[in-house]
Design a protein around this nucleic acid. Sequence first.
RNA 1: UGAGCUAUGGUGUAACGGUAGCACUACAGAUUUUGGUUCUGUCUGUCUAGGUUCGAAUCCUAGUAGCUCAACCA
Length: 556
Amino acid sequence: MSEEKHLNFIEEIVEEDLESGKYKSIVTRFPPEPNGYLHMGHATSICLNFGLTKKFPGYTNLRFDDTNPVTEDTEYVDSIKEDIKWLGFEWQNEHYASDYFDELYEYAVKLINKGLAYVDDSTSEEIASLKGTPTEPGKNSKYRDRSIAENLDLFQRMKAGEFPDGSKTLRARIDMAHPNMLMRDPVLYRIKHAHHHRTGDKWCIYPMYDFAHGQSDSIEKVTHSICTLEFVPHRELYNWLIEKLEIYPSHQYEFARRNLTYTVMSKRKLLQLVNEKHVDGWDDPRMPTISGMRRRGYTPEAIRDFCDRVGIAKRENVSDVGLLEFCVREHLNKIALRRMVVFDPLKVIITNFAEETQWLEGEDNPEDENSGTRKIPFGKELYIEREDFMENPPKKYFRLFPGGMVRLKYAYIIRCDEVVKDDSGNVTEVHCTYIPESRSGHDTSGINVKGTLHWVEVKNAVTAEVRLYDRLFKVEDPSSEEGDFKEYINDNSLHTVATAFAEPALKNARINERYQFLRKGYFTLDNKDTYSRLVFNRTVSLKDSWKPGQATPLKG
RNA sequence: UGAGCUAUGGUGUAACGGUAGCACUACAGAUUUUGGUUCUGUCUGUCUAGGUUCGAAUCCUAGUAGCUCAACCA
C-alpha cells in the first residue's frame, strides 16, 4: 500500500480509462515517417508508447506514416526498426499507412458522397491566399460548390492519373472562417506521380497526414494515439474526420517534445549537420540520434532510465544532457571492464626493477563480484600519463612529483627520484624506485599514499586510436540563440588521440563490450572504423571533482 | 490585432483543497589502491495581482510571459 506511483498525465488517463471500463486493454502505436533517422526525441516517444503497454494490458504497433513518397525510403524503414529493437522494445504488428491506401480512398469517396469534400482546381498559391491568416477569416474557393457527381468523377480521374501534379486537390468542406486554420477546408489528397517505396506506381494520389494518420489509428483500433504538442490543433480535425467517417474513435493525446541541452533535435537541423559535413553522418557519435548514441557506447538501459527519470509533461522543456550522462555512467559503472590506457605517455624507469616482465593480476570490475580478472604486465619501463607528473606541484596534488610517492594501480608504490629533460627543458623521463613490499594485495610496506595512477608497461603495450567527444554545441540551446544555429557548433567536439598505449588485454576488445579506462572514462570499440586496428570512442568521461591548483602545468 | 497550449529551485518532474517532495547539478564532509564508485549533509522554487476557503501550487477572475497554427510535409 505504500507503493509510490508517480504516473505521468497520460498514464493517469489510461489508468482511468481502464478503471472506468472504457477499455479492457489498450492499443498504442509508434508512428515514424521513414524519412530520417530516429533521435532522442523519438526515444522518448518509443519509451512512452511501448512503456504504456508494458505497464498496462495491451500492445503497441509500429506503423510507418509513409504518405509522402518523394521523401521516404526503405533505408529509413530498416534503420528505424533496428533502433527500436536495440532500445529493447517489440511491436505487436508492423503496419504501413500505405497498406490502407484503398480504404483511405473509399473514406474519401464517402466524404464526397456526404457533401463533405470537394475537388479543388486552385493552385497551391490560390489555396494559400484564400486561407486567410490566424487573425482574418479565409474565403471560399470557387470550386467549393461542385456537385457530388462532379466531385466523384473528378476524384476518380485524379486517381486514374488524368491530371498533372498539383493541378487538383481533394479538400474537406468544413468552414473557411474557422478560428482553427486547420479546419479551413484542409487538403486531403494531392496528386503526385511518384514511385512509392511500397506501393510502387499503383497510386498517383496520396493522402495528407491528416487524412491518413487518424484513419490508420482507427483502422488499427488504437485507443490512445499519442503525439507531440504541435499536433494539438490537428485534434479537432482528427475528431471531425472520425465522426463524419463514422469509424472507430481513437483518441489523440499530446505531450511536450523532449529537448536536450547542447544539441539540436529537429530532423531538419540534424540533416543539415549531416549534409554539410559538420558530423560524420547520422550515426556520428556526437549526434543525438539513436544510432549515434549506440556508436558512442550509450546503452539502451541508460537511455530508458533517462526517459523514465525525465518524465512526460506538457510544458516546453530543455533537459540537461548531464542527466543523460549520469544515467550512462551509472549503468556503465556496473558493467564496464576496467582497463588501463595511457593517452599522453611519459616514460617511467623503475631503476631497481629486474629486466623481466612480472605478470600481475587486476580485477575486471570492482562493482561486480562475479567479474573475473586479467593479467597485467609490469616491468622496468612504464608509461604513465604526462599530466600525472608535475615538477612543481600545487598544494593537494596527489600525483607524482620529485621526491613524491604514488601507487601504480594493481602494482607497486613508487618514489620519484630523478627527472630527465631534453635540451629545451621538457621532461622526457622520470626515474623511480619501487617498494617491493608494496605489491597490491600483499602490501606489508606500511606506506600510505594519496594518489593511485594508471600505467602501461612499454614492452607489452598495444596501440589504439582513441576518439574523445565533447558537446556538439557551445551553448545550451542553439535553437534559441540569435542567428543560425550552426554558428554555435563546438569546433572542438572531437579530439583524436592517434596513438594511445593500452594494456595487452585490450587486444581482445570486442564490439559492444564496454570498458572503463581507469581514471579516463568509459569507452567502447567504434562499430565502423575498427578493422585492422583498435579504435575506441569515449562514451562519457568519469566525473572529475579535482580542481587543479594554481601551479603551472608541465609543458610538453 | 484570432484560436489553442503551458507556467513549481539552475534543470527535469511530483504533490489531484491539508507539512512543497524526488532526481540531476552545485557546494561541504566521510570512505576509497580509480581525485571514480558509495555514504552523509547543505543551498536554491509555486509568474503577478485580486478573489473563494478554516486552509490554495492546486479552484475562480484579470494580467504577464513562453510556445503552436497561415506546407499539395509529418
